[in-house]
Amino acid sequence: MTDLADIGSDVSHVERMVETRLPTAHGEFKAVGYLDSRWGHEQVALVYGEIAGTAPLTRLHSECLTGDVFASTRCDCGDQLAAAMRKVVAEGAGVIIYLKGHEGRGIGLLAKLAAMRLQEDGMDTVEANLALGLPVDARDFGVAARILHDLGVSEVRLLSNNPDKLESLRRNGIRVVERVPLLVQPNDDNLPYLRTKRERLDHLLPHLA
């Protein structure tokens, strides 16, 4: 097992705890569980196929209970996760890191629900977070880079529309050799959310009308 303390500063708080096979509707992954003792978050990387010595297709997926579990149509999170799993399996190898502590762009579930309520009154997601006195985006993607280092991955093809993820990986020693778009079909409920991501958060979403 890689000693994360040897990779760089402030990394020893991420420890690999367990790994096991995880059969899914999309294919069989290896689930590798990590403990981030700094925040108490339990993180998981889904590894498909042989990734050693490659730049695997890689998705950093932020936790979203409403989208991933309850299939809410107010966001594209659940659709993106399913699409990412399909793409990784189709590639024959890849990594999906599911990031706990990222609910509502890092503000937490209850605050996210409060922000949703403000959106019903006409605010966008940025305005709603600020109205609650919370950051627009409080997520830290550094833990994902530490997990990739532990998996022996130093370069990736990043499956993302979010430029912050790309820059964070680069700052943390992961080379991004290609950014692969992850575009899902919008619906009436999530189109305003997606437009806010494009227009105010610089996400690359060229498929939006």
Rank of each mutant, 00 (worst) to 15 (best):
D68N: 02
G94I: 07
R157F: 13
V18N: 01
S160V: 10
K30F: 00
Q80A: 03
R198S: 10
A209M: 06
P163A: 01
A45E: 09
R139M: 07
T58W: 03
T54H: 12
E19L: 02
H13P: 00
T20E: 08
R198I: 02
E42F: 08
S9T: 12
K197A: 09
F70L: 11
T24A: 02
I97T: 06
P163F: 01
P135D: 04
L22D: 11
D164Q: 14
A209H: 07
R175D: 15
D124I: 05
G106H: 10
L166Y: 05
K87S: 15
V11F: 11
E42V: 13
V153E: 12
E19A: 02
H149Q: 08
A111R: 11
D164V: 15
E155N: 13
R200N: 02
R74A: 05
M85V: 05
L65T: 06
R170F: 12
Y48A: 08
L151P: 14
H41T: 07
T196P: 10
G49K: 13
C77P: 01
H41Q: 10
L99S: 03
R200K: 15
R105P: 01
T66I: 00
I107F: 10
N172G: 09
R175K: 15
L134T: 09
R105H: 04
R195K: 15
V176F: 01
A83I: 01
E15P: 00
S12Y: 12
P163D: 11
D6A: 14
M1S: 14
L169G: 13
N172F: 12
E178H: 10
A82Q: 15
F29N: 12
V14E: 00
H149R: 08
E19G: 00
L134I: 05
R179N: 10
E199K: 14
G27I: 04
I107K: 02
M123Y: 04
L130N: 09
L191C: 02
A144E: 03
G8W: 07
E15T: 15
S154T: 15
T196G: 09
V136Q: 06
L99E: 04
H41W: 07
L132K: 04
E155S: 15
G27W: 09
N162T: 05
D10Y: 11
L208D: 13
H203F: 01
G8D: 11
G104C: 03
L205G: 04
E50M: 05
P206W: 04
T125H: 03
D76V: 00
T54A: 10
K30Q: 15
L182P: 09
L158T: 12
